[in-house]
Design a protein around this nucleic acid. Sequence first.
RNA 1: GCCGAAGUGGCGAAAUGGCAGACGCGGAGCACUCAAAAUGCUUUUCCGAAAGGAGUGCGGGUUCAAGUCCCGCCUUCGGCACCA
Length: 829
Amino acid sequence: MSELQNESPENGYDVFAIQDRWLPVWDELRPFNSGIDGDPRPKKYVLDMFPYPSGDLHMGHAEAYALGDVISRYWVQKGFNVMHPIGWDSFGLPAENAAIKRGLDPKGWTYDNIAQQKASMRRYACSFDWDRVLVTSDPIYYRWNQWLFLEFYNKGLAYRKNSNVNWCPSCQTVLANEQVVAGLCERCDSVVTKKALTQWYFKVTEYADRLLDDLDTLEGNWPAKVLTMQRNWIGRSTGAEVEFEVEGRSEPITVYTTRPDTLFGATFMVVAADSDLAAELASMAAPDVRIKFQDYLEQVKKSNDIERLATDRKKTGVELGIFAINPINGERIPIWVADYVLADYGTGAIMAVPAHDQRDFEFAQTFGLAIRMVVDTGEGDPSETGVPTVGDGVLVNSGSLNGLSKYEAIAKAIELLAGQGKGKAAKNFRLRDWLISRQRYWGTPIPIIHCDNCGEVAVAADQLPVLLPSAEGLDLKPKGTSPLGGASDWVNVACPKCGQPAKRDTDTMDTFVDSSWYFLRFLSPNSTEVAFPKDAAHDWAPVDQYVGGVTHAILHLLYARFFTKVLHDLGYVDFEEPFTRLLNQGMVLMNGSAMSKSRGNLVTLSSQLDEHGVDAVRLTMAFAGPPEDDIDWADVSPAGSAKFLARAWRAANDVTSQPGANFASGNADMRKATHTFLRDFAPAIEGFKFNVGVAKIMELVNALRKAIDGEAGSSDPAVREAAEVVAKALSLFAPYTAEDMWAKLGHQPGVALAGLQAADESLLVESSVTAVVQVDGKLRDKFDVSVDISEEELRTRAFASENVQRAIGDKQIANVIIRAPKLVNIATK
RNA sequence: GCCGAAGUGGCGAAAUGGCAGACGCGGAGCACUCAAAAUGCUUUUCCGAAAGGAGUGCGGGUUCAAGUCCCGCCUUCGGCACCA
């Protein structure tokens, strides 16, 4: 039996009865309906990241939705028409894996979980607008994924290419770059391998500059950490492309370098072993070299990213016996192949400057290649010190560049090369195009038909959606090709162009496609006419406040930003960033680590709700600390929260005055406390300091308790004023308790819409303050003074203090700082 | 290795350069009670009986005054990781 149930007969606060009382009332009242025609309130869009329906809601959801709700309810209270919708990101591998394991249809598993989560959200009193709900695995939703895909396709932003892609041997599907974490599959932690496949891509790289530059507009409104991660991920570098003629080859090799100033120090060239260029050069090489190259290439292909990542890895490579000509000085340099150069970055070939690059230096040392210093940084010659130098310095051994600084030389070198037509300024990105096709069943079918005569043929927009065929009879087990290939009735169609037999594309889209634009779909979640109406997008979007975990700092947020920019360029939206403000909440841990069944530290949300009630759990989430910090559930006290809620509720019960009492005639101290609270509460909430906001409510409740038990008494109008303010402020955190308090105070249901009055400044005017006196910065005395005390008088009073005199002793006074009326600091010599 | 953030009581945490520790958890005491629970009140950074002293990771600095600003360390956590 819980403590609360024990205490309820005594003091009347029965949180479970309160929950049962108000939920049906709210169903009638619908306080968070954002779709009323002609609603005059200004609009605001608050969005919580939508959940994946993997089971019931867990403690992490409970934190995220508690915090999102504080923000959403705050703006409602402020008089805004807040759109706060919810949906389910319901396509994806977990459903499919669960289905395979249990021999079920992924659909049944998914929709059962959605129903369960929805019920939990309602019980949890989430302030969602239940008219704005979407489920990405519904045809009415994914139809528009397909429509968007075709829009992208027609713009050349969706394309197919063959390349070495990340392959998860366990999931038996390809992965986007972003889904490979330290060489492991993000989902199952298998070692990711490479596989040459023809796959669909979205051209994110075409937007790389804008995705990077526009981050500046989010500065201050997004967590700095997320901005940094995005910047690093996009990874723009600037430098030059330089052409090297190759002996025995008509075409020159272009290399990318950030250091064209070091061109005179290039003593060899390295080509990525797994590039087409390497293969072609090897075919020109001597027979014994060709064999060595083939052996090496096989070795490289076998190694995976984990091995590549080892930092102390020895440099390896093969010399081709072919030479390139340095365009700046005509020098003949040997060409090597090695795996430390990446095929898919820059041009897949580099000029190696061992004196001024760590990796080139190691390679040169391993194979005894020349190391020539061309920038004197004052740290000594790398060939002697054994340490390559990368900083600024003075150019040496560099012909016409001699004497210049690094940055002058970069500019000059580019100028020289450009003059000869041998090079130009260039930039490169770490960001790669987004691989969006997946060889799995539970996703959006790609609306393309492959015809032997006509090639790729897009499904006509009016033929959408391409419905996902039933899973019945399909083998969903991962086998490297899409399970949809087994649905022959579905796959085999007539080519829309020529009518000849053709086949549907059997891959499905990465689920990140679904979540890249869902925030727009909430504008018209059930429309069969448009993905979203332009005018509604203009009125509501972008999202004013987005709330979710930092786990999506790169993937989801980058893709959503990309989609928004494309939609902008296509003329569908008039903004370029989807999420104006972003709040990342932390995680809920148990005893220092993430909760999991296998760790044995799992605390279920339902157990906490059953034990402490919804309001206490929500309040605990908000009060635990700053929202972005992790919460260790072992360190916080939902029982303490419940105790506080009961205390607040009892105070409201004790109020004996009638609604509409004239507050102005109330107890002055109580009124001052109430209006001090009103002054301080809003800034705390708007600054995401929810824990401080809760602390302020607690202070007000403490003052209220004192007023009721003390001089003012339970009938004082100021007591009513304070109790009403507590109910309204508390409604952001503990909606059930607040609603019940509101009713006990004699009001109609709907505390969420009651509004919170502004502080009456005239009640906050202080007549006296506490002045502190320091001697040499140490507190020695304090006393109450009038707020308009003069400096002279304050000085006199400070020196009159015995404590102060004792602290000064026989020391001489050097300086007296007076900040009337609050502070005197006496500095001695 | 590179980049970034953070270190404050027994614990979660507050603090526009101006009284360190708001608010809460936990602890102690008192009242109510036959008793307990619940509730209310008091107290709770450390040392000290007190007067007083020390105190925001460590060492310096700026300032009348530093948790807060600057420099150098240490530790922890996050991100990136052969990107030329």
